[in-house]
Simulated assay, not measured.
Amino acid sequence: MNITIGSDHGAVALKDEVKMVLKEYEDIKVTDVGTFGTESVDYPDIAEKVCADVTSGKADLGIVLCGTGIGISIAANKVKGIRCALCNDVYSAKKAREHNNANVLAMGGRVLGFGPAGEIVRAFVESSFEGGRHARRVNKIMAIEQQ
């Protein structure tokens, strides 16, 4: 599985911790599109880079992080084909994949501690879309994008 990750300056430390969690998985390759320091950057630019990898098929999943996770998740969801879920708990991360077929996870570097964020990431990457009745709903979500 290929995962592209990116953060703004408000979540670089959390991004580095998430990358450590992802190293636990032998079958996951991580691409980091930045940023790499605390100098201010604009989170929409990072969201666009991560989502481009997901929509092109270069990445199976994306992870985006900013101070709260809110701005970068809004930006990510503006990209056609992206279903980004802002998750602050394990249950939401699991259901985002199982019920909503989320392909990008968003989290906040100033909201979550390293331990909880790691558990959220594990739940997200270890879960998969259930299909069934959820497929109909996801198809309706994606149809809205075509309007």
Results as ranks from 00 to 15, higher is better:
92 S>M: 13
22 L>Q: 12
34 G>T: 02
68 T>E: 07
128 S>R: 06
125 V>A: 13
47 A>E: 01
101 N>R: 14
15 K>G: 06
45 D>Q: 04
132 G>D: 14
56 S>E: 07
40 S>Y: 07
80 K>D: 06
60 D>W: 01
126 E>T: 12
40 S>Q: 12
111 V>S: 11
14 L>I: 04
104 V>C: 07
118 G>V: 12
102 A>I: 12
38 T>Y: 15
51 C>E: 00
42 D>G: 04
35 T>L: 11
24 E>G: 05
95 K>C: 13
16 D>W: 01
61 L>N: 04
3 I>L: 01
137 R>Q: 13
138 V>T: 10
47 A>Y: 01
99 H>Y: 14
123 A>T: 03
133 R>C: 14
111 V>F: 12
61 L>V: 04
106 A>I: 06
135 A>M: 03
109 G>K: 11
131 G>N: 06
114 F>S: 08
72 I>N: 07
43 Y>L: 02
42 D>Y: 09
75 A>F: 08
112 L>Y: 05
119 E>Q: 15
93 A>G: 10
55 T>M: 12
10 G>E: 07
84 C>L: 09
16 D>G: 05
19 K>S: 00
142 M>E: 15
80 K>A: 03
128 S>M: 01
83 R>V: 05
99 H>T: 03
90 V>A: 11
79 V>C: 00
126 E>H: 10
26 E>P: 06
101 N>G: 02
82 I>D: 04
73 S>L: 09
145 E>V: 04
64 V>G: 02
121 V>I: 13
35 T>W: 01
68 T>C: 00
16 D>T: 09
59 A>E: 07
14 L>C: 06
70 I>D: 02
132 G>H: 04
117 A>K: 01
80 K>M: 00
44 P>I: 00
26 E>G: 02
49 K>G: 01
92 S>V: 13
146 Q>K: 15
139 N>D: 15
139 N>S: 15
129 F>L: 03
25 Y>G: 10
60 D>Q: 14
53 D>I: 00
135 A>V: 08
108 G>N: 05
76 A>W: 02
13 A>H: 05
37 G>W: 11
4 T>E: 12
74 I>P: 03
18 V>T: 01
110 R>C: 03
12 V>T: 15
111 V>A: 14
121 V>F: 12
4 T>F: 13
115 G>A: 14
92 S>E: 08
123 A>W: 02
127 S>I: 08
104 V>T: 01
98 E>R: 10
43 Y>P: 03
30 V>E: 07
119 E>T: 11
78 K>Y: 04
30 V>Y: 10
82 I>N: 02
108 G>C: 03
23 K>G: 05
55 T>Q: 06
82 I>C: 05
71 G>N: 09
20 M>R: 15
80 K>W: 01
136 R>H: 14
49 K>W: 00
83 R>Y: 11
136 R>S: 08
146 Q>G: 07
32 D>V: 05
68 T>Y: 06
113 G>H: 06
138 V>P: 02
36 F>S: 11
42 D>I: 00
75 A>W: 05
103 N>V: 09
58 K>S: 13
78 K>L: 03
17 E>V: 01
115 G>I: 12
73 S>E: 02
36 F>G: 13
142 M>I: 14
120 I>M: 12
28 I>D: 13
106 A>L: 11
91 Y>L: 10
113 G>F: 08
124 F>H: 04
19 K>T: 04
135 A>D: 14
70 I>S: 05
19 K>H: 04
140 K>S: 03
